[in-house]
Amino acid sequence: MATIEQHNNSDRINIAIDGPAGAGKSTVARRVASLLGYVYIDTGAMYRAVTLAAQRSGIGTSREDLLAELVSNLDITLKPGDPVQRVFLNGEDVTGLIRSREITAGVSAVAAVEPVRTSLVDKQRKLALAKGVVMDGRDIGSHVLPDAELKVFLTASVEERAKRRYKESGAEQGYTLEQLEREIAERDRMDEQRLVSPLVKAKDAVLLDSTNDTIDEVVQRILELSRGRIAEANSQ
């Protein structure tokens, strides 16, 4: 089960923001949602919550049957927060725990397990039924919300993404910049090569390279695109 506060808004659109680790998806998506008055859904946090539950239960990725049972019984709740969205796992606030080094190292493998992905995708689609959602992840435009009115593929160079992660939390977690570059490159490889819903740019997605752009510049570009899509939706 996954829940988030939302209301039915027939004149609104859904916005899908995909991209590799460290591209700034969550920060950008959260700001865009806030400025539009939309609901922000961090799908990566949902997979991290499942990874935390799996690690606590001692369930490895080879036991797909046990992971399927585990995820079907989890209550993952997303609540607005400042500066990040709060994530609750069976009523426990795990916002900080799911950003640990151990969870980051294990989340790609858990996210690649088909029953885990199938269950969470179903929850994510239900959350978006009412429209007015900004959802970020790695397969939102290509798989989770293929009919989203606006799809954005946000990327940046590996070096720039590593610098951002290092500045954000890498140093305090004991990472070196070189370690982050290697781990981000490996995360890219795993996400792009997984058999279930790999990281790909949807054919109709707008490509935005944020290597040399500020967060504000990226947010403004997406707002411009969204206003155009909203106008198109309202004219139909």
Rank of each mutant, 00 (worst) to 15 (best):
R56P: 01
Q236T: 15
A23D: 06
E64W: 11
S142F: 07
N234T: 15
K79C: 03
G44L: 05
S62R: 13
Y38C: 06
L89E: 00
V32I: 15
R187D: 15
E178R: 04
V87R: 00
P20T: 04
E69M: 07
M1F: 07
V219P: 06
A33C: 13
S157H: 08
N212A: 13
Y166D: 06
R56L: 06
V206S: 01
Y175L: 08
I184V: 13
G174V: 04
V206L: 06
R56N: 09
Q236G: 14
M135W: 05
N8K: 09
K131M: 09
A111P: 02
L154M: 10
E183T: 12
D188H: 05
Q6T: 14
L74P: 08
V71T: 13
V39Q: 00
I13F: 05
Q193Y: 06
T118K: 15
A21I: 08
Q220D: 11
G24C: 06
Q220V: 05
A53L: 12
I103C: 02
M46F: 11
E64C: 13
S34C: 03
E5F: 10
A109V: 02
R101Q: 11
V87S: 00
A128H: 03
S197E: 06
S169D: 07
I13Q: 00
R221F: 08
A231R: 11
Y40A: 05
M190A: 09
D75N: 15
V28T: 12
N8R: 10
P80A: 04
V71F: 10
Q220H: 09
Y38Q: 04
H143P: 02
T95W: 07
Q6M: 12
T27K: 05
E149N: 12
